[in-house]
Amino acid sequence: MKSLAELAALRQKSLDKLNMRNEDSERQRIVVGMATCGIAAGARPVMNTFVEEVNKRNLTDVAVSMTGCMGMCVLEPMVDVYDTKGNKTTYVHMNPEKAKRVIAEHIVNGQPVTEFMITAEEANNA
């Protein structure tokens, strides 16, 4: 049975990973919209997938977090990715499979996934 006492042992594993981090490197940030409309549309499994992938791939310079309403319910689940300079890419209608591709293509390889991005038309209609 899992218990909090075992966490002390995991602490070292986490510290080793943290130490691998390049002190100077800025973090990329993934922000998942988690208001009622986002949650109802499937935002939680999307966030879950991002966290699992970050863990699996040892991406120590990526932070995953959540925010409230992103203002465009029909486009949820929505995700903003901020690069190390703070530039934002908005992804819409996300799901766990798409989240895996955003990790592989955008976060790891630096190539935003154009087909999941919000279009000008969607932005105007929302």
Partner: peptide, 19 residues
């Protein structure tokens, strides 16, 4: 238990989830 490791460290989150 984890001291200076943040609670949102993915390793910690993964363990808490299983627990």
């Amino acid at each position: 238990q984890i001291g200076d490791v943040p609670v949102n460290d993915p390793v910690i989150i993964g363990y808490l989830k299983e627990m």
